[in-house]
């Protein structure tokens, strides 16, 4: 399993367009990918799941991927996040 922590720095948190981008990215991979925040985990391939978490600015999140392409998945998602969501 591959895992990485991020801090969301975008003012709007994970909303709207950033959420769509994350889900689109995650959906490109075979692995099961989850987004965890405050002890709650959702499927990162689910737009409704991701938005229901209500991740705001300053939130600490964990992304976990498990499957044949888990390393690539984490890398791909990291790129999307660093492009404007957080670090």
């Amino acid at each position: 399993m591959a895992e990485r922590n991020f801090t969301i720095t975008a003012e709007t948190g994970i909303h709207a367009r950033p959420a769509t981008q994350l889900v689109n990215k995650a959906s490109q991979f075979e692995s099961e990918i989850t987004l965890e925040h405050k002890g709650k985990a959702v499927n990162l391939k689910s737009i409704m799941g991701v938005m229901s978490l209500g991740v705001g600015q300053g939130a600490e999140v964990t992304i976990k991927a498990e499957g044949s392409d888990e390393e690539e998945a984490i890398k791909g998602i990291e790129e999307v996040i660093k492009e404007g969501l957080g670090e």
Binding site: V23, S27, S46, I47, M48
Partner: peptide, 13 residues
């Protein structure tokens, strides 16, 4: 409508 399409692909749904 991109958002609508994503909803239709949403595994949770």
């Amino acid at each position: 409508f991109s958002a609508h399409l994503l909803v239709l692909s949403d595994p949770e749904l």
